[in-house]
Design a protein around this nucleic acid. Structure first.
Lengths: 226, 226
DNA sequence: TTGTGGATACTTACCGGTAGGTAGGTAAGG
DNA sequence: CCTTACCTACCTACCGGTAAGTATCCACAA
């Protein structure tokens, strides 16, 4: 099966490979990402992972605690990046609409850069944990919701938006983001382009936009940074 | 599904249970649904299923071909119901907005009545197949999209809606439905009520609604049933 | 210069457990 | 006496994980 010559020169006097292009740890990482996203956590065996990575089984246990540890290492990277994105956005200023647009676009971009990991996250967040160890995806999701709500409220206070319940507007926006993610996951060949996404988000935001020329309703504009 | 009382007549001289209220097949069905949704297909063992159903292993293989067959039987019921719903809606008439609202509400209702099965479907549709046999969820999803697009176009032709690209409007509507489903799956305790859902859908539909009192743009109104 | 000791990065060979699945039997009813 | 509806006992394959050994390099003392 594996074309990997088991005669890994590693021994033998003559130094065999000039330098492995990717070290074993990185190869394990890539192989596991690929397999977990294609087959799921439980359905992927460590044997498959190490074979795809071209290493032997104990190597996996040398670099990672075990199968769970490998999974956790995979997920944590993306989770931290997402958290940092929201954190960075919390400090931003400017028109609420622009902030929402750029937030969504950046989330979508992060998502596209980590499709395999996100597919695993999605399937575990919405579906059953496939024997995979617990990870608090919910915390991140909630942090995102809260940030979005804050920007929406600030936009309303600044007279930029007009809507009844903040949650309604929030869900409408999240719906657009979800759809873009869904298409990316299930039909990457017809994935929404950035202009597509902007148009659809614009459509929804137009439903909460204050009428053009509406009075800037900045009532005390509390908390809104200058 | 079929409540056909097999009346498991087999009772030893001293019948331990007075009478099983549910026959073995139905109990297996229920147990598998519960376990698959809680642990995932691959992470659920047939031993767990039969134990939860209170039967022995060969009973499962007596009623179903194997683990895969049990899974397929589970999914097919919901898929057929969904398909029938879209079929039934294709024949409906009336204002496009009402049709979209009732379609979404009925889909959401079907969804709520089959949360366990849908959770499995979701996690496999968006995520990796967990070693589960292939099922063409995509066909159903596409059928739904096409129906929705048709109603939207009819609504525009009738002067009820005004939007640029049909796909944009479709995705915006689907986004709302997705969000409602997402909340149902991940936070059933704060699931959107029907009024909540109607408000949010109304918000999005208001973005594609033709201005009040706009001329009814029925240009040849081709294909629109009277 | 050489010896050596430890860290690093693996290897082969194996373990106990459990997975899905089955062979073959049995009790009860028509 | 055959069919239906189950049971006990078991099989093989493969699972996650490990014990123990080995080649290579480098630091540092002799």
């Amino acid at each position: 099966m594996s074309e990997t010559k088991k005669t890994t020169g590693r021994k033998r006097a003559a130094a065999p490979p000039p330098a492995p292009p990717e070290d074993a740890r990185a190869r394990l990482f890539r192989a596991a990402t690929e397999l977990f996203q294609n087959k799921g956590y439980a359905a992927t065996t460590v044997r498959e992972v190490v074979e795809a990575a071209g290493v032997t089984k104990p190597v996996l246990y040398y670099y990672f605690e075990n199968k769970e540890g490998l999974y956790l290492a995979l997920m944590r990277g993306v989770m931290e990046e997402f958290e940092a994105l929201i954190e960075a956005h919390s400090a931003r200023t400017g028109p609420a609409r622009r902030r929402i647009e750029s937030l969504c676009e950046e989330v979508l971009d992060l998502f596209k850069r980590h499709v395999p990991a996100v597919r695993i996250m999605y399937s575990i967040y919405y579906g059953p944990p496939q024997g995979a160890p617990f990870l608090d995806f919910d915390r991140l999701h909630l942090a995102f919701q809260n940030h979005l709500k804050r920007v929406l409220v600030e936009g309303r206070e600044a007279g930029e938006f007009r809507f009844g319940r903040t949650e309604d507007a929030m869900w409408a926006v999240i719906g657009v983001l979800n759809v873009a993610q869904e298409v990316e996951l299930c039909h990457p060949e017809t994935a929404l382009s950035l202009p597509d996404f902007r148009r659809i988000l614009g459509l929804v935001l137009s439903a909460v936009a204050a009428p053009a020329g509406a009075p800037v309703n900045r009532r005390r504009s509390k908390g809104v940074k200058p």
